[in-house]
Design a protein around this nucleic acid. Structure first.
Lengths: 233, 233
DNA sequence: GTGATGTAAAAGTCGTACTTTTAATCCCGA
DNA sequence: TCGGGATTAAAAGTACGACTTTTACATCAC
């Protein structure tokens, strides 16, 4: 689940990225690169590469004669899967989970509608398979197996939409679903209504009924949001 | 509009990023870092930092004994504003513009609905101001002035939604609107219907009518997509 | 043909020396 | 006392060269 982290670079990047996104260094904090080099026991070269990456995510800004300044959250590249993973691992997981779920509730219904128009027969088949997989694993504390099908289902929908921006949200959805399963922001067994809805979405897509696919997916999203309201503080 | 590009790093990054996103190096192409250093007349240090950033965008992958391999488009961080700008500047602008507009059509209506619930009085005022600004500049080839209000309007809506994921799409929307204006994927004067709709959205938000704000914004989105269908090849 | 072994090519890492920018200080005159 | 221009030094930016590590590929033995 975590990054392979082979190589000094990955290690330092993960450490710093996590620390910053966790709010360990509040915006405005300045870090000096050779101080960082010393702290992580790596050369300045490695630190510089890490800083450059963090800079491209707008987590920090490096200025001469000043140092590496942590930037305000408002500018962060919150769509970067790496950043998402760090934030979900950190302290503000609840907030993060909510805002991502709201994003899902906007995107996925439209994606499902498009999927109904564009899905290949193969994708329809996969969809049905995973929906049935969800049914099969929806009872008896089999959340891990259920999760696999759930993720796959939504990924296929997003891919089948034919829109690359939607398709790229597959990873985000995967992170959200994994996050809420592993942190018990979910009922012990999946909501049966949600399971049924997934099966119906697969049906609607297969029958090329875009409006129905969209509406059903919207209901799934509403349900997910409500579940979050109930279970998240 | 373009990056400040001070420093060797930014220069090389822009050059390479543009070239790759433009498809100048098809996926699978391998580049050697010291070859790049020579080509751009910079040290390997600088090239390495650039490669690390491109790697974090999943545009390339660097492997020992192999080199820097260009990755398939499917994995690119297409939500990175930097990547978006490069792609909009490159050859597949039409495709890019379309997929981003579809994304907008999914997100903005929901954002507008939330804005109606969460907008501060200040944001309501700004919204009205920009809507009126759009009316005032909607006739007589004043597209540049219109564009400023249009961008500001949508940015306020996204910010007022109170969802950080939506808020961060402000830059994306700005790029899309700028792109379509500057590349004539738009009527010579803005569609009067669209202008009216913006005024009505401002109204709906002011009156806390979420459903109406959402529906009106959906109509704006539909209009934008149709305009794209008509004017893009 | 298959599997072990060797080799070299490329990135990864490090240390150091130097350059450039620029925040902060100092100094001087009004 | 205050303001502004010159000075200083701190930090990042850049370059280079040496060394390490991984690993694709070729070679060889069986």
């Amino acid at each position: 689940m975590t990054t392979p982290a082979q190589g000094l670079h990955s290690h330092v990047l993960a450490a710093l990225g996590l620390a910053i996104t966790a709010g360990e260094y509040p915006p405005g904090t300045v870090l000096r690169s050779d101080e960082l080099a010393q702290r992580f026991d790596v050369s300045r070269t490695v630190v510089r590469e890490v800083v450059r990456v963090l800079e491209s995510m707008h987590l920090v800004e490096s200025r001469r004669r000043v140092g590496v300044t942590v930037l305000p959250i408002a500018g962060w590249n919150v769509y970067d899967p790496q950043v998402i993973r760090w934030r979900l691992a950190g302290s503000d997981r609840p907030r993060q989970l909510r805002s991502l779920t709201v994003l899902r509730s906007a995107v996925e219904p439209v994606a499902a509608g498009l999927a109904a128009e564009n899905a290949t027969p193969d994708q329809c088949r996969e969809l049905t398979e995973h929906a049935l997989g969800m049914v099969a694993t929806s009872r008896g504390r089999r959340l891990e197996e259920y999760l696999v099908h759930d993720i796959a289902f939504h990924r296929v929908v997003l891919n089948a939409s034919g829109n690359e921006m939607f398709a790229r949200l597959g990873d985000v959805v995967a992170e959200v679903l994994t996050g809420r399963t592993h942190h018990h922001v979910m009922f012990e067994d999946p909501d049966p209504a949600a399971v049924t809805l997934h099966v119906q979405v697969a049906e609607a897509v297969r029958e090329r009924d875009a409006a129905r696919a969209e509406e059903l997916t919207r209901q799934i999203a509403v349900g997910a949001l409500q579940e979050l309201d109930v279970l998240a503080p």
